[in-house]
Write a protein that binds this DNA or RNA. Structure first.
Lengths: 197, 197
DNA sequence: AATAAATTTGAACACCGTTCAATTTTTTTC
DNA sequence: GAAAAAAATTGAACGGTGTTCAAATTTATT
Protein backbone atom coordinates (compact mmCIF):
# COMPACT_ATOMS: atom_id res chain seq x y z
CA UNK A 1 0.00 0.00 0.00
CA UNK A 2 2.11 2.83 -1.32
CA UNK A 3 0.70 6.28 -1.53
CA UNK A 4 0.02 6.34 -5.24
CA UNK A 5 -2.37 3.43 -5.15
CA UNK A 6 -4.20 3.97 -1.89
CA UNK A 7 -7.30 4.68 -3.85
CA UNK A 8 -7.11 1.37 -5.69
CA UNK A 9 -6.23 -0.42 -2.49
CA UNK A 10 -9.27 0.98 -0.72
CA UNK A 11 -11.49 0.06 -3.63
CA UNK A 12 -10.12 -3.48 -3.61
CA UNK A 13 -10.64 -3.86 0.12
CA UNK A 14 -14.10 -2.37 -0.12
CA UNK A 15 -14.97 -4.79 -2.86
CA UNK A 16 -13.82 -7.67 -0.68
CA UNK A 17 -16.06 -6.51 2.15
CA UNK A 18 -19.09 -6.22 -0.09
CA UNK A 19 -18.51 -9.56 -1.78
CA UNK A 20 -18.01 -11.42 1.48
CA UNK A 21 -20.27 -9.55 3.88
CA UNK A 22 -22.77 -7.62 1.80
CA UNK A 23 -23.21 -3.98 0.92
CA UNK A 24 -24.55 -3.06 4.35
CA UNK A 25 -21.22 -4.04 5.87
CA UNK A 26 -19.38 -1.40 3.89
CA UNK A 27 -19.03 1.46 6.36
CA UNK A 28 -16.27 4.02 6.66
CA UNK A 29 -14.99 2.60 9.93
CA UNK A 30 -15.03 -1.02 8.85
CA UNK A 31 -13.35 -0.15 5.59
CA UNK A 32 -10.72 1.80 7.48
CA UNK A 33 -10.03 -1.09 9.81
CA UNK A 34 -9.91 -3.62 7.00
CA UNK A 35 -7.53 -1.38 5.10
CA UNK A 36 -5.32 -0.57 8.08
CA UNK A 37 -5.89 3.15 8.00
CA UNK A 38 -8.16 5.70 9.63
CA UNK A 39 -11.42 7.05 8.38
CA UNK A 40 -9.72 10.32 7.55
CA UNK A 41 -7.61 8.67 4.89
CA UNK A 42 -10.71 7.43 3.13
CA UNK A 43 -12.09 10.94 3.11
CA UNK A 44 -8.80 12.12 1.74
CA UNK A 45 -9.30 9.90 -1.30
CA UNK A 46 -13.07 10.18 -1.66
CA UNK A 47 -15.31 13.16 -1.00
CA UNK A 48 -17.77 10.93 0.84
CA UNK A 49 -18.86 7.34 1.14
CA UNK A 50 -21.43 7.72 -1.61
CA UNK A 51 -18.64 8.61 -3.97
CA UNK A 52 -16.71 5.59 -2.82
CA UNK A 53 -19.68 3.33 -3.46
CA UNK A 54 -20.15 4.98 -6.81
CA UNK A 55 -16.52 4.23 -7.68
CA UNK A 56 -17.11 0.59 -6.74
CA UNK A 57 -20.21 0.54 -8.90
CA UNK A 58 -18.34 1.93 -11.88
CA UNK A 59 -15.90 -0.94 -11.50
CA UNK A 60 -18.77 -3.40 -11.37
CA UNK A 61 -20.27 -2.01 -14.56
CA UNK A 62 -16.86 -2.15 -16.22
CA UNK A 63 -16.51 -5.77 -15.21
CA UNK A 64 -19.93 -6.54 -16.62
CA UNK A 65 -18.99 -4.87 -19.89
CA UNK A 66 -15.72 -6.77 -20.00
CA UNK A 67 -17.49 -10.01 -19.27
CA UNK A 68 -20.04 -9.44 -22.05
CA UNK A 69 -17.41 -8.37 -24.54
CA UNK A 70 -15.63 -11.67 -24.06
CA UNK A 71 -18.63 -13.54 -25.43
CA UNK A 72 -18.33 -14.62 -29.03
CA UNK A 73 -21.27 -14.17 -31.41
CA UNK A 74 -23.58 -17.09 -31.99
CA UNK A 75 -24.74 -18.42 -35.36
CA UNK A 76 -27.47 -15.80 -35.61
CA UNK A 77 -27.84 -12.30 -34.22
CA UNK A 78 -30.94 -13.47 -32.46
CA UNK A 79 -29.05 -16.21 -30.71
CA UNK A 80 -26.29 -13.77 -29.93
CA UNK A 81 -28.74 -11.60 -28.04
CA UNK A 82 -29.72 -14.63 -25.99
CA UNK A 83 -26.09 -15.32 -25.33
CA UNK A 84 -25.61 -11.80 -24.04
CA UNK A 85 -28.60 -12.28 -21.81
CA UNK A 86 -27.12 -15.47 -20.44
CA UNK A 87 -23.90 -13.66 -19.75
CA UNK A 88 -25.74 -10.82 -18.07
CA UNK A 89 -27.77 -13.09 -15.82
CA UNK A 90 -24.73 -15.17 -14.99
CA UNK A 91 -22.76 -12.06 -14.08
CA UNK A 92 -25.50 -10.71 -11.83
CA UNK A 93 -26.01 -14.04 -10.09
CA UNK A 94 -22.34 -14.59 -9.47
CA UNK A 95 -21.86 -11.03 -8.22
CA UNK A 96 -25.02 -10.70 -6.20
CA UNK A 97 -23.73 -8.40 -3.49
CA UNK A 98 -21.97 -6.10 -5.90
CA UNK A 99 -24.98 -5.92 -8.16
CA UNK A 100 -27.27 -5.32 -5.22
CA UNK A 101 -25.12 -2.43 -4.14
CA UNK A 102 -25.13 -1.04 -7.65
CA UNK A 103 -28.85 -1.13 -7.84
CA UNK A 104 -29.39 0.06 -4.34
CA UNK A 105 -27.19 3.05 -4.89
CA UNK A 106 -28.67 3.62 -8.30
CA UNK A 107 -32.07 3.99 -6.73
CA UNK A 108 -30.84 5.98 -3.77
CA UNK A 109 -28.82 8.49 -5.72
CA UNK A 110 -31.11 8.78 -8.65
CA UNK A 111 -33.39 11.05 -6.71
CA UNK A 112 -30.91 13.63 -7.87
CA UNK A 113 -29.15 13.49 -11.19
CA UNK A 114 -26.94 10.49 -11.90
CA UNK A 115 -23.25 11.20 -12.55
CA UNK A 116 -22.15 11.30 -16.14
CA UNK A 117 -19.59 8.56 -15.58
CA UNK A 118 -22.32 6.24 -14.40
CA UNK A 119 -24.61 6.94 -17.33
CA UNK A 120 -21.66 6.47 -19.67
CA UNK A 121 -21.10 2.98 -18.28
CA UNK A 122 -24.74 2.08 -18.74
CA UNK A 123 -24.63 3.27 -22.33
CA UNK A 124 -21.46 1.27 -22.87
CA UNK A 125 -23.25 -1.92 -21.89
CA UNK A 126 -26.11 -1.18 -24.27
CA UNK A 127 -23.60 -0.58 -27.04
CA UNK A 128 -22.44 -4.16 -26.72
CA UNK A 129 -25.88 -5.47 -27.60
CA UNK A 130 -26.50 -2.95 -30.33
CA UNK A 131 -24.87 -4.59 -33.36
CA UNK A 132 -26.76 -7.84 -32.84
CA UNK A 133 -29.94 -5.94 -32.07
CA UNK A 134 -29.63 -3.84 -35.19
CA UNK A 135 -29.04 -6.85 -37.35
CA UNK A 136 -32.16 -8.58 -36.09
CA UNK A 137 -34.27 -5.49 -36.59
CA UNK A 138 -32.57 -3.85 -39.53
CA UNK A 139 -35.87 -3.04 -41.19
CA UNK A 140 -37.19 -1.04 -38.27
CA UNK A 141 -36.70 2.70 -38.48
CA UNK A 142 -33.55 3.72 -36.55
CA UNK A 143 -35.42 5.98 -34.17
CA UNK A 144 -37.87 3.33 -33.12
CA UNK A 145 -35.23 0.66 -33.06
CA UNK A 146 -33.13 2.71 -30.71
CA UNK A 147 -36.06 3.30 -28.43
CA UNK A 148 -37.06 -0.36 -28.45
CA UNK A 149 -33.54 -1.34 -27.58
CA UNK A 150 -33.41 1.06 -24.68
CA UNK A 151 -36.73 -0.08 -23.31
CA UNK A 152 -35.63 -3.71 -23.55
CA UNK A 153 -32.41 -2.99 -21.73
CA UNK A 154 -34.26 -0.94 -19.14
CA UNK A 155 -36.61 -3.84 -18.49
CA UNK A 156 -33.84 -6.36 -18.09
CA UNK A 157 -31.80 -4.00 -15.98
CA UNK A 158 -34.78 -3.27 -13.77
CA UNK A 159 -35.72 -6.89 -13.35
CA UNK A 160 -32.11 -7.70 -12.55
CA UNK A 161 -32.51 -6.01 -9.18
CA UNK A 162 -34.74 -8.89 -8.21
CA UNK A 163 -32.17 -11.41 -9.32
CA UNK A 164 -30.08 -10.54 -6.27
CA UNK A 165 -32.91 -11.16 -3.83
CA UNK A 166 -35.27 -13.91 -2.80
CA UNK A 167 -38.44 -12.25 -4.02
CA UNK A 168 -38.69 -14.21 -7.23
CA UNK A 169 -38.22 -17.46 -5.37
CA UNK A 170 -41.36 -16.73 -3.40
CA UNK A 171 -43.46 -15.71 -6.36
CA UNK A 172 -42.46 -18.17 -8.97
CA UNK A 173 -41.54 -21.76 -9.52
CA UNK A 174 -39.35 -21.18 -12.55
CA UNK A 175 -35.74 -20.12 -12.44
CA UNK A 176 -34.60 -16.55 -12.59
CA UNK A 177 -32.84 -17.21 -15.85
CA UNK A 178 -36.05 -18.56 -17.34
CA UNK A 179 -37.87 -15.41 -16.32
CA UNK A 180 -35.30 -13.23 -18.03
CA UNK A 181 -35.26 -15.38 -21.15
CA UNK A 182 -39.03 -15.26 -21.35
CA UNK A 183 -38.98 -11.51 -21.02
CA UNK A 184 -36.32 -11.09 -23.68
CA UNK A 185 -37.78 -13.46 -26.23
CA UNK A 186 -41.37 -12.38 -25.80
CA UNK A 187 -40.28 -8.80 -26.26
CA UNK A 188 -38.21 -9.67 -29.32
CA UNK A 189 -41.11 -11.66 -30.75
CA UNK A 190 -43.32 -8.64 -30.17
CA UNK A 191 -40.95 -6.38 -32.06
CA UNK A 192 -40.76 -8.89 -34.89
CA UNK A 193 -44.53 -9.09 -35.05
CA UNK A 194 -45.03 -5.35 -34.90
CA UNK A 195 -42.51 -4.56 -37.60
CA UNK A 196 -44.53 -6.58 -40.11
CA UNK A 197 -47.37 -4.08 -40.05
CA UNK B 1 -55.42 11.41 18.83
CA UNK B 2 -57.12 9.02 21.20
CA UNK B 3 -55.39 5.89 22.31
CA UNK B 4 -57.26 3.49 20.09
CA UNK B 5 -56.14 5.11 16.87
CA UNK B 6 -52.59 6.14 17.67
CA UNK B 7 -51.40 3.61 15.17
CA UNK B 8 -53.49 5.11 12.40
CA UNK B 9 -52.51 8.61 13.46
CA UNK B 10 -48.83 7.77 13.28
CA UNK B 11 -49.29 6.16 9.88
CA UNK B 12 -51.13 9.25 8.63
CA UNK B 13 -48.46 11.60 9.95
CA UNK B 14 -45.72 9.41 8.53
CA UNK B 15 -47.42 9.42 5.18
CA UNK B 16 -47.55 13.21 5.27
CA UNK B 17 -43.84 13.40 5.97
CA UNK B 18 -42.98 11.06 3.12
CA UNK B 19 -45.28 12.78 0.65
CA UNK B 20 -44.01 16.25 1.47
CA UNK B 21 -40.37 15.63 2.38
CA UNK B 22 -39.42 12.28 0.91
CA UNK B 23 -38.78 8.87 2.36
CA UNK B 24 -35.38 9.82 3.78
CA UNK B 25 -37.09 12.32 6.05
CA UNK B 26 -39.08 9.63 7.80
CA UNK B 27 -37.06 8.95 10.96
CA UNK B 28 -38.28 7.92 14.39
CA UNK B 29 -37.46 11.27 15.95
CA UNK B 30 -38.99 13.39 13.21
CA UNK B 31 -42.10 11.25 13.17
CA UNK B 32 -42.35 11.57 16.94
CA UNK B 33 -42.05 15.34 16.80
CA UNK B 34 -44.53 15.66 13.96
CA UNK B 35 -46.97 13.45 15.85
CA UNK B 36 -46.50 15.16 19.19
CA UNK B 37 -45.25 12.12 21.03
CA UNK B 38 -41.96 10.54 21.95
CA UNK B 39 -40.02 7.89 20.08
CA UNK B 40 -41.02 5.37 22.70
CA UNK B 41 -44.66 5.64 21.70
CA UNK B 42 -43.80 4.72 18.14
CA UNK B 43 -41.97 1.65 19.38
CA UNK B 44 -44.98 0.83 21.47
CA UNK B 45 -47.07 0.59 18.30
CA UNK B 46 -44.46 -0.84 15.92
CA UNK B 47 -41.69 -3.30 16.64
CA UNK B 48 -39.24 -1.17 14.68
CA UNK B 49 -39.09 1.46 11.98
CA UNK B 50 -38.88 -1.12 9.25
CA UNK B 51 -42.22 -2.46 10.35
CA UNK B 52 -43.61 1.04 10.32
CA UNK B 53 -42.40 1.62 6.79
CA UNK B 54 -43.78 -1.74 5.81
CA UNK B 55 -47.18 -0.72 7.20
CA UNK B 56 -47.02 2.45 5.13
CA UNK B 57 -46.13 0.41 2.07
CA UNK B 58 -49.06 -1.93 2.60
CA UNK B 59 -51.31 1.12 2.62
CA UNK B 60 -49.71 2.34 -0.60
CA UNK B 61 -50.30 -1.00 -2.30
CA UNK B 62 -53.88 -1.00 -1.07
CA UNK B 63 -54.38 2.45 -2.50
CA UNK B 64 -52.95 1.33 -5.82
CA UNK B 65 -55.31 -1.64 -5.86
CA UNK B 66 -58.26 0.59 -4.98
CA UNK B 67 -57.28 3.04 -7.67
CA UNK B 68 -57.04 0.31 -10.31
CA UNK B 69 -60.29 -1.31 -9.26
CA UNK B 70 -62.09 1.94 -9.86
CA UNK B 71 -61.23 1.80 -13.56
CA UNK B 72 -64.01 0.56 -15.80
CA UNK B 73 -63.24 -1.94 -18.59
CA UNK B 74 -62.64 -0.62 -22.07
CA UNK B 75 -64.24 -1.89 -25.26
CA UNK B 76 -61.75 -4.75 -25.55
CA UNK B 77 -59.74 -6.70 -23.01
CA UNK B 78 -56.62 -5.54 -24.79
CA UNK B 79 -57.57 -1.92 -24.35
CA UNK B 80 -58.52 -2.63 -20.77
CA UNK B 81 -54.97 -3.78 -20.09
CA UNK B 82 -53.72 -0.51 -21.48
CA UNK B 83 -56.15 1.33 -19.28
CA UNK B 84 -54.79 -0.47 -16.23
CA UNK B 85 -51.30 0.46 -17.29
CA UNK B 86 -52.33 4.09 -17.57
CA UNK B 87 -53.80 3.92 -14.10
CA UNK B 88 -50.69 2.28 -12.74
CA UNK B 89 -48.33 4.83 -14.26
CA UNK B 90 -50.55 7.67 -13.16
CA UNK B 91 -50.65 6.34 -9.62
CA UNK B 92 -46.88 5.95 -9.42
CA UNK B 93 -46.21 9.38 -10.86
CA UNK B 94 -48.64 11.12 -8.55
CA UNK B 95 -47.33 9.25 -5.52
CA UNK B 96 -43.64 9.37 -6.32
CA UNK B 97 -42.30 9.55 -2.80
CA UNK B 98 -44.57 6.82 -1.51
CA UNK B 99 -43.73 4.56 -4.42
CA UNK B 100 -40.06 5.24 -4.06
CA UNK B 101 -40.23 4.23 -0.43
CA UNK B 102 -42.11 1.09 -1.36
CA UNK B 103 -39.51 0.09 -3.83
CA UNK B 104 -36.61 1.12 -1.71
CA UNK B 105 -37.85 -0.95 1.18
CA UNK B 106 -38.76 -3.77 -1.12
CA UNK B 107 -35.18 -3.98 -2.22
CA UNK B 108 -33.73 -3.42 1.20
CA UNK B 109 -35.85 -5.97 2.98
CA UNK B 110 -35.90 -8.52 0.23
CA UNK B 111 -32.46 -9.69 1.14
CA UNK B 112 -34.40 -11.70 3.68
CA UNK B 113 -37.82 -13.10 3.02
CA UNK B 114 -40.64 -10.69 2.25
CA UNK B 115 -43.58 -10.68 4.67
CA UNK B 116 -46.68 -12.60 3.64
CA UNK B 117 -48.85 -9.50 3.93
CA UNK B 118 -46.66 -7.73 1.39
CA UNK B 119 -46.67 -10.60 -1.09
CA UNK B 120 -50.44 -10.87 -0.68
CA UNK B 121 -50.84 -7.22 -1.70
CA UNK B 122 -48.66 -7.75 -4.76
CA UNK B 123 -50.73 -10.75 -5.78
CA UNK B 124 -53.88 -8.72 -5.23
CA UNK B 125 -52.72 -6.17 -7.79
CA UNK B 126 -51.95 -8.88 -10.33
CA UNK B 127 -55.39 -10.32 -9.77
CA UNK B 128 -56.94 -7.10 -11.01
CA UNK B 129 -55.27 -7.48 -14.39
CA UNK B 130 -55.93 -11.19 -14.65
CA UNK B 131 -59.45 -11.33 -16.11
CA UNK B 132 -58.52 -9.02 -18.97
CA UNK B 133 -55.24 -10.81 -19.48
CA UNK B 134 -56.91 -14.20 -19.59
CA UNK B 135 -59.45 -13.03 -22.08
CA UNK B 136 -56.79 -11.75 -24.44
CA UNK B 137 -54.78 -14.95 -24.19
CA UNK B 138 -57.48 -17.52 -23.58
CA UNK B 139 -55.92 -19.95 -26.02
CA UNK B 140 -52.60 -20.08 -24.21
CA UNK B 141 -52.16 -22.93 -21.78
CA UNK B 142 -52.99 -21.78 -18.22
CA UNK B 143 -49.55 -22.57 -16.88
CA UNK B 144 -47.74 -20.53 -19.49
CA UNK B 145 -50.33 -17.80 -19.36
CA UNK B 146 -49.86 -17.44 -15.64
CA UNK B 147 -46.12 -17.27 -16.01
CA UNK B 148 -46.31 -14.73 -18.83
CA UNK B 149 -48.60 -12.59 -16.75
CA UNK B 150 -46.26 -12.67 -13.79
CA UNK B 151 -43.24 -11.83 -15.90
CA UNK B 152 -45.10 -8.93 -17.47
CA UNK B 153 -46.12 -7.59 -14.10
CA UNK B 154 -42.63 -8.08 -12.77
CA UNK B 155 -41.23 -6.07 -15.66
CA UNK B 156 -43.64 -3.21 -15.20
CA UNK B 157 -43.21 -3.25 -11.46
CA UNK B 158 -39.44 -3.24 -11.82
CA UNK B 159 -39.39 -0.46 -14.35
CA UNK B 160 -41.74 1.53 -12.17
CA UNK B 161 -38.92 2.14 -9.73
CA UNK B 162 -37.36 4.35 -12.37
CA UNK B 163 -40.55 6.28 -12.79
CA UNK B 164 -39.95 7.93 -9.44
CA UNK B 165 -36.48 9.14 -10.39
CA UNK B 166 -34.80 11.25 -13.00
CA UNK B 167 -32.82 8.48 -14.64
CA UNK B 168 -35.18 8.01 -17.54
CA UNK B 169 -35.18 11.73 -18.24
CA UNK B 170 -31.45 11.56 -18.82
CA UNK B 171 -31.49 8.49 -20.99
CA UNK B 172 -34.49 9.06 -23.13
CA UNK B 173 -36.41 11.71 -24.95
CA UNK B 174 -39.79 10.04 -24.75
CA UNK B 175 -42.12 10.20 -21.79
CA UNK B 176 -42.16 7.67 -19.03
CA UNK B 177 -45.68 6.68 -19.93
CA UNK B 178 -44.60 6.03 -23.50
CA UNK B 179 -41.83 3.77 -22.28
CA UNK B 180 -44.25 1.71 -20.19
CA UNK B 181 -46.79 1.53 -23.00
CA UNK B 182 -44.12 0.38 -25.40
CA UNK B 183 -43.00 -2.30 -22.98
CA UNK B 184 -46.54 -3.53 -22.39
CA UNK B 185 -47.66 -3.59 -25.99
CA UNK B 186 -44.51 -5.07 -27.39
CA UNK B 187 -44.69 -7.81 -24.80
CA UNK B 188 -48.36 -8.44 -25.53
CA UNK B 189 -47.63 -8.51 -29.25
CA UNK B 190 -44.89 -11.01 -28.56
CA UNK B 191 -47.25 -13.26 -26.66
CA UNK B 192 -49.80 -12.99 -29.46
CA UNK B 193 -47.18 -13.88 -32.02
CA UNK B 194 -45.77 -16.77 -30.05
CA UNK B 195 -49.15 -18.36 -29.34
CA UNK B 196 -49.74 -18.80 -33.05
CA UNK B 197 -46.97 -21.37 -33.33
C1' DA C 1 19.98 19.45 9.91
C1' DA C 2 16.27 22.62 9.51
C1' DT C 3 12.44 24.03 7.28
C1' DA C 4 8.33 23.50 4.53
C1' DA C 5 4.75 20.87 2.56
C1' DA C 6 1.77 17.06 2.43
C1' DT C 7 -0.50 13.35 4.59
C1' DT C 8 -2.60 10.81 8.22
C1' DT C 9 -4.90 10.67 12.34
C1' DG C 10 -8.92 9.94 15.51
C1' DA C 11 -11.64 12.41 18.89
C1' DA C 12 -15.74 15.05 18.33
C1' DC C 13 -20.24 16.35 16.16
C1' DA C 14 -24.80 15.50 14.62
C1' DC C 15 -27.43 12.23 13.21
C1' DC C 16 -29.66 7.29 13.10
C1' DG C 17 -32.56 3.03 15.30
C1' DT C 18 -33.46 1.13 19.58
C1' DT C 19 -33.96 0.16 24.68
C1' DC C 20 -35.90 0.41 29.25
C1' DA C 21 -36.11 2.28 34.06
C1' DA C 22 -38.69 5.90 35.69
C1' DT C 23 -42.56 8.74 35.30
C1' DT C 24 -47.24 9.75 34.17
C1' DT C 25 -51.82 8.41 33.07
C1' DT C 26 -55.65 5.37 33.29
C1' DT C 27 -58.29 1.76 35.33
C1' DT C 28 -59.82 -0.98 38.97
C1' DT C 29 -60.89 -1.88 43.62
C1' DC C 30 -62.55 -0.79 48.02
C1' DG D 1 -63.83 9.78 46.48
C1' DA D 2 -59.33 7.70 47.92
C1' DA D 3 -56.00 4.06 47.32
C1' DA D 4 -53.96 0.49 44.78
C1' DA D 5 -52.97 -1.73 40.48
C1' DA D 6 -52.32 -1.76 35.70
C1' DA D 7 -51.14 0.37 31.47
C1' DA D 8 -49.04 3.70 28.62
C1' DT D 9 -45.68 7.32 27.82
C1' DT D 10 -41.42 9.26 28.29
C1' DG D 11 -36.65 10.61 26.94
C1' DA D 12 -31.88 9.97 28.37
C1' DA D 13 -28.61 6.59 27.07
C1' DC D 14 -26.28 3.03 24.00
C1' DG D 15 -24.00 1.72 20.03
C1' DG D 16 -23.94 2.58 15.47
C1' DT D 17 -23.65 5.75 11.11
C1' DG D 18 -21.26 9.66 7.90
C1' DT D 19 -18.34 13.50 8.29
C1' DT D 20 -15.04 17.18 9.96
C1' DC D 21 -10.69 19.30 11.11
C1' DA D 22 -6.99 20.74 14.41
C1' DA D 23 -3.13 18.36 15.73
C1' DA D 24 0.40 14.91 14.97
C1' DT D 25 3.11 12.59 11.82
C1' DT D 26 5.46 11.68 7.65
C1' DT D 27 7.61 13.16 3.45
C1' DA D 28 9.98 16.56 0.54
C1' DT D 29 12.67 20.53 -0.01
C1' DT D 30 16.01 23.73 1.06
Amino acid sequence: MTKDNIREYLLAKGRELVVSQGAAFLTARKLAEASGCSVGTIYNQFANMDNFIMAENLQTLDELAGSLRKLSPDSSAYKTLNRYLDGFVRFVLSNRNLWFMLYHFHLQASVKKLPRAYLRRLVRVIEIWRPAFEEVFKDIRPRERRLSMQVLWLSLFSVSSFLTTRVLDDMNSVSKKTICKLLLNTYLAGLTALKKD
